[in-house]
Simulated assay, not measured.
Amino acid sequence: MGQFGFLIDMDGVIYKGKQVVEGANRFIQRLLDEQIPFAFLTNNSQRTRRDGVIKLARMGIHVDESHIFTCAMATARFLASQKPGGTAFVIGEGGLLQALHKNGYAIVDDDPDYVVVGEGRMFNMETVEAAVRMILRGSKLIATNLDPNCPTAHGLRPGCGAIVAMLETATGLKAFSVGKPSPVMMRSARKELGLSTGGVVMIGDTMETDILGGVSMGYRTVLVLTGSTKREDLVRYAYRPDVVIDSIGQLCEEHIFQHVIEGLAVDPAPQEAPA
């Protein structure tokens, strides 16, 4: 069968708000105990890897920073490969700023190589106006992701995609997005785990990001129904996950776990996990 591993979305899969999904901790502990490669794959650019580790630890899931892979990391690595030692004007927060600095980027307020947009509430119209002027003068617009909104304990709030849409409308120019479902992030995360394409299982709750990204890369995809996608939503999409389960806790059941793993060696028709 060869080596296999998991890319796992966080919000809606491992937890909802501050509540861990039942069975998630047992599944992750199995991966740790059996030394199965995995990474949590998140389109949240606000948090650093360390922030993610602490958030999970408070829910009883104990991993280290190597298990966290964010769209901020993917964005910073991509920009460093495109223009080493470049400059960026950032609309975003700590996770994005740290990732850019770690990859050799300077944060500037004038004439940047890139205008980089992430999630956050620390922006205003003055910042947006400055970004528009920079883009029109030639700075390239980069989105850490295009998610239109973000779930919070109090409901949805505008996401990175909403801020990017405002800049795109104002400038008439389109952003290049690095986060899920972009192959840039999906491929970078796979390489981080040292896996081949055929050895990756993507577990997510969102068809437009997790599942689309996995399908596009040729990964095996598992949709959980604890997040944004419901079973009745599936008929609206031209693509489907390989396996549909109620929650990640079901992967603690040996026959379902084996069903997912064994499917890596074949190209099965889309189906639900066996009852």
Rank of each mutant, 00 (worst) to 15 (best):
L195C: 15
G198P: 03
V178R: 01
T169N: 06
H154L: 09
G172Q: 08
T152C: 11
T221E: 08
G138R: 12
S228W: 07
F176S: 04
D233G: 13
L141F: 10
S216D: 10
G120T: 08
M186I: 06
N145G: 10
R231Q: 12
R157A: 04
L167D: 01
S228L: 09
M207V: 07
G172F: 04
L173P: 06
A165Y: 12
A170T: 00
D205N: 14
V116M: 00
M207F: 04
D233K: 12
T127I: 15
L212S: 08
A153H: 13
F176T: 02
K180C: 12
A175T: 09
L173S: 11
T221W: 03
V184E: 14
M217P: 05
T221P: 02
P151H: 14
R121W: 00
A162G: 07
R137S: 08
R157Y: 03
G155D: 13
T226W: 07
G138Q: 13
V178A: 00
R157I: 06
L146I: 14
A131N: 03
K174M: 01
A131Y: 00
G218I: 10
M207D: 07
K191R: 15
R187T: 09
K174Y: 12
E126M: 01
V224C: 05
P151Y: 15
P158F: 09
L225Q: 06
I142G: 04
L193A: 12
S216Y: 05
A131Q: 00
V224R: 05
E129V: 02
S188E: 13
K191F: 03
N145H: 11
G227F: 11
G199P: 04
G194K: 13
I163E: 01
I135L: 10
I163P: 05
G179M: 06
C160S: 15
L167C: 06
H154R: 13
M202P: 01
M207G: 03
L146A: 09
I142Q: 01
T221F: 03
M166A: 14
S177V: 08
M134E: 01
V215I: 08
K174I: 02
D210R: 02
L234E: 10
G227M: 14
G172T: 04
R220M: 13
G199E: 07
F123G: 06
A170D: 00
A143M: 13
G194P: 02
G198M: 11
P158I: 07
R231D: 01
M217F: 09
D233W: 11
E208Y: 11
G179P: 11
E129A: 01
K174V: 01
S177M: 04
G218K: 10
P158L: 11
S177Y: 09
V178M: 03
T152G: 11
H154S: 06
K180A: 15
R133I: 03
P183D: 11
D233R: 07
G161W: 02
G172C: 07
G204E: 06
V201D: 11
P148Y: 12
G138D: 04
M202Q: 12
K191Q: 15
T209R: 04
G138H: 12
